[in-house]
Design a protein around this nucleic acid. Sequence first.
DNA 1: TAATATTTTTAGATCAATCTAAATATATAT
DNA 2: ATATATATTTAGATTGATCTAAAAATATTA
Lengths: 220, 220
Amino acid sequence: MKLSTAEENYLKAIFKISEKANKSASTNAIARHLSTSAASVTDMLKRLSEKGLINYEKYKGVTLKSAGIKQATQLIRKHRLWEVFLVKKLRFSWDQVHEIAEQLEHIESEELIMRLDAFLDYPKFDPHGDPIPNADGKFTIRSQTPLSDMHKGQQGMLVGVKDHTTEFLKYLNSLNVKLGTMISVIDSVPYDGSMNVNLDSKKEIMITSIVAQNLLIRIG
Amino acid sequence: MKLSTAEENYLKAIFKISEKANKSASTNAIARHLSTSAASVTDMLKRLSEKGLINYEKYKGVTLKSAGIKQATQLIRKHRLWEVFLVKKLRFSWDQVHEIAEQLEHIESEELIMRLDAFLDYPKFDPHGDPIPNADGKFTIRSQTPLSDMHKGQQGMLVGVKDHTTEFLKYLNSLNVKLGTMISVIDSVPYDGSMNVNLDSKKEIMITSIVAQNLLIRIG
DNA sequence: TAATATTTTTAGATCAATCTAAATATATAT
DNA sequence: ATATATATTTAGATTGATCTAAAAATATTA
């Protein structure tokens, strides 16, 4: 089934909201996510429901049907593969690729994505450490812990970031923190959750709780 | 100025029609080119005219203003760069890339095209031998002659094709004719314009006039 | 639980892009 | 040059995607 860009964006939004909250997505949540009005969302939900992509009952929120999940997953796959392309091949920095991938993900061609995947050597994670679903929609799972949950003395490698905003990523750039950076917890301040950490056994810095919450570490 | 995909497609159509015929594009010609109705074209021409992209007077056909030329040229640049990417990097064959590039050309990002151009090593021609305008919209000019205009004994290299349809390109594939193939005219039949030609000093084949008209040769 | 607040849907418009059918303008040919 | 054919535009609708304002349903709280 051929979907419009708008329809695809709704499916992706519903997928992400349901995934995060692990429940049905509300009209308002979708509207917020897509910066649109609740009324527009209701309209679109009716259309997506007609097309058999979502379970929608008035006032009850929505969940994706299997066809909808498939579409959403393929969009995420495409988005993340394009991000890898932009960073690895075109040498964009990880804070510059989201918007462009947001457009590229709507390009229609199975063959293109197959070949892109091969060209990039079947990457399993994107430049922000998010897993790239394979052609069947399967995500690679990896154990990871927010730095904020780690304790004094623990260490591990930065494998992902939760916040994808340019501002956050640029801040990490300024600290020279990137995927692969080894981080060990020197100590943490119970009062405000801020932490002193060591980077690659070289530099010691202090980070706030909010930053620590957005850094995903593979401990060990 | 940000344009819609539809607007961009009209500009490109007008550019191509004017270029080929070397005069203003008629409503019908545009409609034919875009497989739409003349009425739709008239509607769109009004809009493009309002935006200052074209010169439009009722019943007189249209020409592009400089802003329109700039937009159209950049679209062609993007289209052809993406075709190079698809063929050179993703190993698509030259008969498979048009439709995908047709979508990719609408991706908005100056930076992306700059980097793609560099990644591809600043190609001057696309996989069909069409010149790729540079960032300033300048096309590389190359002397080339339709094979149909060549005479017995003349020879040269295939540097481009006029017809970009899958069928034509697949036919060339079946003859093992590609860009770079050396072609020499053994003789031509005045009656129907068909020709006997030699390929890479190896194989001799007969081609019809229509095929010869679509093969562009750099003589010598 | 009754009042209030919040969320969601409906009603009614708008805009871009398209269509068909009808009207009008231009071109061609006898 | 007049009739006929062709090209183009206008009129009026339609569809998807959006909006605001108002109505209705659900949730929260005193």
